[in-house]
Amino acid sequence: MIDPQEIPLLRYLLLLRVHKPLLVLPPYLALELAYATSVMISERLPSSQLKPWKKLITAWEAANPISEDRRTRLIHNPPQSVWPLDLAWLPYRVKQTYGHGEIISCELKLFGRSASHELFLELILPVLEAAGLTPDRRWSRPNSVWGGFHLENVYVARGRQWEPVVEDGQVDFSVRPGTRQWCDGLDLTVVPAGHTHRLRWYTPYAHTPEPPQFRKREHLCRVAQENAPGMSALVQALAVRLEKLAPEISSDWMLGIEDLAMQVGNNTEHVSCVPKYWPGTVWGDQELSYVPEQLMPILRLASMLHIGFHTHVGCGNFRLV
């Protein structure tokens, strides 16, 4: 079985306080978060560290041509590119419009070699603060999120608890979270009370880095149902993810698991295509015929780490409901 202690991970909960009268979020906030922070990070780095970031920005721009007004770039597609950091943006979807004083919540995960609290404090935190306070014509629009919030509080996960890192805009530099504390007290073998065999995609699953070629909704829904991953595919996707984030973990955990996973049925009747301007291809609910106890930790870990493509913009996160 996989020991979660072997997987370096830092989870941050970000609370963004709106200071505009009206703020309208983009269709999929994680896309703009990833793009804007990528550009701003690249502008703060010395030239010796710029090469991979320039490649990423070029890929962003190629995947999202500038809009007709020639002022802003509408970010709808994540790039097919190597990312300099292993991270995932995961905004909590509550609503699309916010008023003055309301809170937007977002989770940021740093994985593997990128799981560094110093990196968060020295690079990501200043970029988020600047993005919230300063409008930028490259991605700002009327009532957009950029220049419309201040970063009020930040918490870091210790098991199921959130410990403060930033309170009322003030950083507590005495906090030194470890990259293994995310799983303190978590027993992934425990079956959540009241769970069913329904797997619900909290963010879309991207089975391919390519966006669908045909835009008719009927076709996209058929593509989604055909590519909704069954239990065996979920196990394989986790193996691919672990190979990248924690290559030192032996693949022995898969012995016997794959055969067991192949016995689990997968009903995709309630799977649908993703909403317009969202990444990925699979959305909605899947009905698994049953979930063996041996596979419960696999599912919970796969959801925590995200699976499939475009994990940087939060894709590949699900729940059993």
Rank of each mutant, 00 (worst) to 15 (best):
G194S: 03
L56I: 11
K54E: 14
L234A: 02
Y277N: 13
S140A: 15
Y28C: 12
T281V: 07
P135Y: 00
L50I: 08
V82E: 15
P142K: 01
N267H: 14
A88E: 01
V271N: 10
L299M: 15
M40A: 07
I75S: 04
A246K: 11
A233K: 09
V156I: 14
H150E: 05
R73C: 06
S67H: 13
K51C: 06
M1T: 11
T37E: 13
D3G: 08
G99S: 08
V127C: 00
P126D: 13
A224S: 05
V82H: 15
L14E: 06
D184A: 13
K51F: 09
R158G: 10
L260N: 07
T37K: 07
H270W: 08
D86I: 03
E293I: 03
S42Q: 09
Y98W: 00
W201Q: 01
K54W: 04
I124R: 05
K244C: 10
T37L: 13
V223I: 08
E122I: 03
S144Y: 04
V166G: 07
S303W: 07
E293M: 07
S81P: 04
L10A: 10
W53E: 00
Q80M: 03
L110A: 01
W182V: 03
Q161D: 11
S289F: 06
H306A: 12
M296E: 10
V271Y: 12
G185L: 08
K55N: 14
Q213R: 15
M40L: 09
N153C: 10
C221K: 12
S303Q: 06
Q263M: 09
P65G: 09
I249D: 00
E293N: 12
G194M: 08
A88C: 06
N143S: 04
W83C: 11
M262D: 15
Q286S: 13
I7V: 09
R138F: 06
E118T: 14
E43I: 00
P84E: 07
P204D: 01
E167V: 13
L110E: 07
P177I: 06
M254I: 11
A157S: 03
V165H: 03
V39I: 13
R138Y: 08
L108Q: 05
D252I: 03
G316T: 05
F309G: 06
E118R: 11
L301M: 08
L220R: 15
Y205R: 02
H117G: 06
L305D: 03
D3N: 15
F173E: 12
W182P: 04
G99D: 02
P212S: 14
S289W: 05
H195I: 10
P78A: 14
I66V: 13
E167Q: 15
S251A: 15
P297A: 11
L87Q: 00
P91A: 05
G194P: 11
P65F: 05
P164R: 09
G308C: 11
I104L: 02
V313N: 03
C183K: 00
L14S: 05
V127P: 02
S116A: 01
E218S: 11
E243G: 15
L31K: 10
I249V: 14
W89C: 12
V166Q: 09
